[in-house]
Amino acid sequence: MTVSRALSFDTAAARYDAARPGYPPALFDAVEELAGRPLEGAEVFDVGAGTGIATRLLCARGAGVTAVEPGPGMAGQFRRATPGVRLVRATGDALPFAAATADLVTYAQSWHWTDPARSLPEALRVLRPGGTLALWWNTADAAVDWVAAQDQRLRRDLAGAAHGAHGRERSLPAGTPRTDRRIRWSRRVPLDTHLANLGSHSLLLTADPGAARAFLERERAELLAAFPDGTVVEPYTVHLTTTRRPTA
């Protein structure tokens, strides 16, 4: 993953915050189960917090969250959308926290922008013994015909995919004890929201602007044929991976 792609979100922070999907309650139920403790009262470092989509949901479950975000544009949107939550400008490869100070370290859609050889030891360092590192990604369900067709068009026209599958390519280093869960869910959104969501992915943000605009206009026509009422049903699978810091 290149730095330019990682920081491309800064150019579209407001759109990202408005259009990107959140996460279902079942995800946070699974995190609590695998962590062996409730989120309520937990000290959480949410790394790569972006505009605060996951941060806000963690706070709603009663967690005490410190967000970590390197991008200036995303951090600015975070402060506007998530007032009152502590935000630290840093990366997961060098967390500015003392050892053994968190119950949970979370990465929502962001682990793949780190170097796991550095970010895993950092997460384990700041976790208390028995604490949990939780990584998750929303991925569009390519078993659904229209999603698979859109993926093919993305690969054909823009030489890539924008549905989050890259997140699974860089999970945890081989040999790391881990537990995996898959949570299926969906949301119904206006076509404009879906296109804004699609356009907020790094593949589109780093493409030639004219090519990106043309692609999104073609997608509007394709999707209106599939969803003539203008409401798109976006199917997702959340890929959740956890590991714990040993207690001894």
Rank of each mutant, 00 (worst) to 15 (best):
L216R: 00
V105M: 07
P121R: 06
V144H: 00
W113P: 02
R220P: 03
L133I: 05
H163R: 04
D157L: 11
A140H: 11
A207S: 15
E169V: 07
Q152K: 09
R125P: 05
D103E: 12
R218E: 03
R184I: 09
D151C: 01
D192V: 13
H112V: 10
H201F: 06
P173N: 07
Q109Y: 11
Q152P: 02
A123D: 05
W137H: 11
L120S: 13
H166G: 05
R125V: 11
W146P: 00
R188S: 15
A162F: 11
L133F: 11
D180Q: 10
L135I: 15
H194V: 05
P116W: 09
R125Y: 12
I183T: 09
L135G: 07
G210R: 10
W113G: 08
A108R: 14
V105D: 06
A159G: 15
L135F: 04
R118L: 15
H112R: 08
A196V: 06
D103G: 10
L104I: 14
G167H: 01
A142L: 00
A100S: 14
W146S: 01
A214N: 06
A108P: 12
V105T: 07
L195R: 05
W137R: 05
A148W: 03
P177R: 08
I183W: 09
A123P: 09
S186A: 15
G131E: 06
D103M: 08
G210F: 02
A108H: 10
L195S: 02
R156M: 01
H166W: 10
A196S: 13
L104M: 03
L120I: 13
Y107S: 14
A123T: 15
G164M: 09
N138H: 08
G160K: 06
E219N: 02
S202T: 15
V126H: 07
L216W: 02
T193M: 05
S171V: 14
S110P: 10
H112C: 08
L133S: 02
A212G: 02
S202D: 03
L124D: 06
T114K: 05
L195N: 04
A162G: 15
A149Y: 02
E219F: 02
R156A: 10
P129N: 12
A108E: 09
T179G: 03
S110C: 12
T179W: 09
W146Q: 01
L154Q: 15
A142D: 14
R170D: 00
T193S: 12
D157S: 12
I183Q: 05
P190Q: 03
D145K: 13
S186H: 14
R128Y: 05
L205T: 06
T114G: 04
W113D: 02
R184P: 09
P190R: 11
R188P: 07
A102W: 05
A123I: 13
G167A: 10
A161R: 15
G175R: 08
A148Q: 13
T101K: 04
R156E: 14
L216M: 08
V144R: 07
A134D: 02
W111N: 12
R181G: 01
R118T: 07
R187W: 04
V189L: 00
R155H: 12
D115L: 12
R125A: 12
R125E: 00
V126D: 04
A117S: 15
R213D: 15
L204E: 00
D103A: 10
H201Y: 09
L203R: 12
D180A: 14
L191F: 07
P173H: 08
L127N: 03
T206R: 06
W146Y: 13
L120Y: 12
L223D: 01
A142Q: 08
T132C: 13
